[in-house]
Every structure is written in structure tokens, then in C-alpha cells.
């Protein structure tokens, strides 16, 4: 259990130590319980790939994998993920050696401004692993947790299809 330390004027929660495996690397950080996983990644670990679009679980820009499942990092606390494996877009590939999904997004113009793209890419990686890339309709349904204000949807769907091995 994590300690709650009393201080002047009531009980003030102590900062807590959290251990995470981020993109394959064990990281320890000391954060207040109220720090979201998204803020911990961006502000404390310098991983700014996951974006803060809405901070309310409505847009998908903050999508990361936790133990290989896609989640929104804005609606969970860093401390709730203690001990878990977190994968951000930075952990998928590099500019020199992109992940196949990243390469497909480039190839198929799966973006315009790019704000939603890291979330789209991470979400698509999970979608393909889940086996939800069977048809265009299925991809649209299972990508519905990632909004794109630029409406680059046709390119996004084409990229996911191609990366999943479907017709391009």
C-alpha cells in the first residue's frame, strides 16, 4: 500500500514512487497520485509522442499500449499502472526503421496535421493484433476511439488495411 502522510492542515498525499517498463526500459519516477499516465510520460519522461487532445477520454490522441492492450493514457493515473509495460509511439519504430504501421501511414497519407497520428498508429497496431482488420467497415468501427479533426480517415483506413496485409 502507498503511504498517506499527515501534514499541516490535514492529510496531504505524499508523492509516490512508481515503477514502469516504458518502451522496454525500466523507469522509476516519483509522482503525486493525481498525475495521469499521459502527464507522467510527457512531462516526466519526455515522451511527447502521446498527445493531450481532450484529456477526457474522448479523442484517442493519448493512446498507448499497457501490457499490449491499447488504452487512453489520459484517463488513468500513473500510479495505477505500477509494474506494467507501457509502449508509446516512440517504442514502435524509428525514422530510420519505422514500424510497418508507421510506414503504411506515410505511404497512404494517413495524416494531415499529425496531431492525432501517434494515437492512430498505436491504436492501429493493437487493432491488427486483436484481429479487427478484416474489412474496411471493421477497421472503421475498431478505430472509432481515435478521432481525426483533419478527417484523414480514408488514408488512415487504407494504411491500416495495408499494414494488416489487406488490399492497398
Amino acid at each position: 500500500m502507498i503511504e498517506v502522510v499527515p501534514s499541516e492542515g490535514g492529510v496531504v498525499p505524499a508523492a509516490v514512487e512508481v515503477g514502469l517498463v516504458v518502451n522496454g526500459e525500466a523507469r522509476r519516477l516519483v509522482v503525486e497520485p493525481r498525475v495521469t499516465l499521459l502527464d507522467a510520460l510527457r512531462e516526466r519522461l519526455g515522451l511527447t509522442g502521446a498527445k493531450k487532445g481532450c484529456d477526457h477520454g474522448e479523442c484517442g490522441a493519448c493512446t498507448v499500449l499497457v501490457d499490449d492492450r491499447r488504452i487512453y493514457s489520459c484517463t488513468t493515473l500513473a500510479v495505477m499502472q505500477e509494474g506494467r509495460r507501457v509502449t508509446t509511439v516512440e517504442g514502435l519504430g524509428t525514422p530510420e526503421s519505422p514500424h510497418p504501421v508507421q510506414a503504411a501511414f506515410v505511404e497512404h497519407d494517413g495524416m494531415q496535421c499529425g496531431m492525432c497520428t501517434p494515437g492512430q498508429v498505436v491504436s492501429a497496431v493493437a487493432l491488427i493484433a486483436e484481429g479487427h482488420a478484416g474489412s474496411e467497415d471493421e477497421i472503421r468501427e475498431w478505430m472509432s476511439g481515435n478521432l481525426c479533426r483533419c478527417a484523414a480517415y480514408p488514408g488512415i483506413v487504407a494504411a491500416v488495411r495495408a499494414a494488416a496485409g489487406g488490399a492497398s
Binding site: 500500500m1 503525486e32 497520485p33 493525481r34 505500477e82
Partner: peptide
Amino acid sequence: MRPFGYVRAES
């Protein structure tokens, strides 16, 4: 967000 404490219950 205001500060708060956090515990992981054991049961």
C-alpha cells in the same frame, strides 16, 4: 485536479 491520496486495497 486537487491533490489526493491513493491506496491499492489488498482485498
